[in-house]
Design a protein around this nucleic acid. Sequence first.
RNA 1: GCCGAAGUGGCGGAACUGGCAGACGCGCACGACUCAAACUCGUGUUCCUUCGGGAGUGUGGGUUCGACUCCCACCUUCGGCACCA
Length: 929
Amino acid sequence: MPEKQEYNPGEIEPKWQKHWEEDGLYNAEIDKSKPKFYALTMLPYPSGDLHIGHWYAMTPSDARARYMRMRGFNVMFPMGFDAFGLPAENAAIKNNIHPKEWTYANIVRMREQLRSMGSMYDWRREAVSSDPKYYHWSQWYFNKLFENDLAYRKMSPVDWCPNCNTTLAREQVWGEDRHCERCGTPVIKKDLEQWFFRTTSYAEELLDFSTIDWPDRVVTLQTNWIGRSDGAEVHFTADSDGLSDDEARITVFTTRPDTLWGATFMVLAPEHPLVEKITTTEQSELVHEYVHQAVRQTDIQRESAEKEKSGVFTGGYAINPVNGERIPIWIADYVLMTYGTGAIMAVPAHDERDFEFALKFGLPILPVIDRSDGLTKSFAPIGTTKPGFAQALNELGISSEEDERGLLITIPVDKLDAYLETISAYLQKDAWNEVVGTGWYFIFSDGIIEWDSQESEQRILVRCKKLEPQVAGAHTLMEMLWGEEFYRDALYHHEYGTMIHSGEFSGTTGDVAVQQVNEWLEELGVGKAAINYRLRDWLISRQRYWGTPIPIVYCPEHGAVRVPDDQLPVLLPDDVEWLPTGESPLKLHPTWKHTTCPICDEPAERETDTMDTFMCSSWYHLRYLSPDYDQGLFDPAEYDYWMPVDIYTGGIEHATMHLIYTRFFHKAGRDMGIMQGPEPMSQLRNQGIILGEDSEKMSKSRGNVIAPDELVARYGADTVRAYLMFFARWDLGGPWNSSGIEGTVRWIRRIWNLFSEVGQNGNPSAETTRAMRRKVHQTLRQVTHDFETFEFNTIISALMELLNEMQKAHENGAAGSEAWDEAVDIYLRMMAPVAPHVAEEIWMNLGKPYSIHSQSWPEVDEAAAAEEQITLVVQVNGKVRDRISVPVDIGEEEAKELALSSPAIAKYMADNEPRKVILVPGKLVNIVV
RNA sequence: GCCGAAGUGGCGGAACUGGCAGACGCGCACGACUCAAACUCGUGUUCCUUCGGGAGUGUGGGUUCGACUCCCACCUUCGGCACCA
């Protein structure tokens, strides 16, 4: 009889890790006799220390991969390092250590940490993105994109981080203050010649998630990020001398072509190329000053939270193609050169920004969409109406309110005609009255003028100014009306509705307006339906050393020439120096950039920028397939067998960066004939973030960092793994709780103790056996389900529950029986993915065949799992009043009868007869009295 | 402002398609073991209660025999976007 050992993870864990590795237990090879399963976890950056967040990401996904393996899949579960990047360079400057040295030392250390988790990584497939054999193929792929016009260089204003001394992609600029995603410094704008990937060519396809199972959260984030807007392009014509037809064409993008008739002015972005040409001599000084200031302001960053509208009139005019109106062209910084066409038609009546702008600068505002809520108002100041007006309104059923200035009238839509008639009759001779909201009328003593055009506005305005000196300063009717507080809610709206004041389109209802106008625009040749995306092309140039060199040579004769494939990789030089300025050492290197043109062999210069590291991480899942392959990105045989990735797990923070880039990379590769299939990753799941015990983000400066190495030293990896799976919902994460881990410590120790009890040839009662087997198979059913759906926390709680049950059975003499052995066997298999070392150790101690991790997942015995007796809840009026135990297959009538005859029920029924009895089979009986 | 997610005991969290709210664990209390402590084991632990019960899943309403779950309105917290035409 072997002596009972203490549970000692410090001893058994390294032992098994070594054993598994030597046996190549987790090596993944192509095996066409089995279904494949490619499980992938986002790779870490080699910062030098694996923190608890890494463990939270990696151990549950490891458990899931192990589960799939036991389910009979040929599982590949690789790991690697995203090794290029800024922290290595920062360390270089700070500690005077070469980034390469720093990075590779960190990788050595982190491999050890990763091994201590006991994960089933196939290390033979490891890929490190800073190895020349890796970045060779990043460069090769760059060339492919360049050949296919998916990589291009252009001069443009780009976001620049003054702290990191490099440009950033739009996705890497975060928050309201537009700060650098890495260091938090607010970015500035710089005009630079930079390399871009044409991600926008794939905008539409990237919106299609129909072939993949990704979380709604990510789908929503990406959809918003790509930001599709449906609308129309409309060509306006600049009305200036000396412009060719082509030059005079100003195209705008609008989501509201149904409001075209309300376009009362145009606004160009200050950087718009046409600004120079249309500005008149009189306005030129103001315009130049504004442009200059606007450009500088973006440089300083648009800091002011309350952005007051600003702008300048260019002196130029444009013709609105739908009605021939001649409208002024302004410039303003609220129009962005980077979205749409950099020019807008302003419809102040139905766009809030345009409304604010028009009011501020006295530009005309013409409502062209009817209100759908029917709100209609009129204000009759004292002295403008004859006595009896209020009473006359009252008799009509029009409510009005009187204040010290006059009558505030809200007119029901169907009483509008009656109102116009009445006010006409009661209006004083030298007064006027107006109706706003639904219907726009000005009533004078000699007749009614409908405000339905800019022309009628002028007529009305002239008359009002004549009658009332107080409004003589108003530039527009809207400005005049806006002065009246009572009107404000009726003056502006941006809803869809019936078109008004829109020529032959007046009366077109909101549900068809956009489409009908679009068709008409196209017929006329002045516009067409169009789609715009918020997504921008991906800026990949970085002014840094520690990255993949962009394989381009600039020749005075031939321009940007790609380095031929057979001359790749363009190697990073090792002998570099860091200046405290933080400037890229690649640029300062004495010889590296001097080379010859691949075409003419004349002297030429290398591109000294490197690629965004997101380029490396866009395809690492392909490099794992064959990390040493030297004929391409990957060995096609490996690709054909393993791809696509079946499950991809990682943090939500990559939703709009990495996860868009990698989809773009794949789709572009597919179109270039390199890859196949619509998507690189079929299923995606995100884990949450672990916070410090103070509920704050973990950081060294806060001192709330939980170090996994210490936990492993103290409790063992199995316990830490189990706790990480148990302590929170995986997709939510949450604050760490140090004392909670005691629960999993006890759990594993209890398993250890209970399962190493030597069997006493127990002879449990049939009932004990039956109950235990039922619980075993019910638990198996749940654990299987929860592994499938990534509900790791309930896997552990179900196993704890079963252990409690088995403990009781053990006390009742179950040990040593056949059922007990079955229970232990199934238990160990179920816990093996969670706690691989201790499961293997107990498995071995029980004399079972090596390894538990090569065993199959057990099958649920449905007969054993079935209940015979169930507890039927008896409710009276929905309140639980009794519980009765009945056979599971009890008949409906019998169950109801039993419930009604329950003595506990009687007193709640009083003397009432049951009005209704509801039976939910297997669950409850509800008696309604 | 727009888009999205989440609100359940002292805490983390359970509850499949509407059917016993609080599984499992932490913490706490009491007890056993111990000279004692730790470990371990056992019992209890949503709140109120006149011990009959009553209330209770962010708030207010609704649908239903029955609502954490469905519908409407609102509040709070978190995440994303933001002068995007």
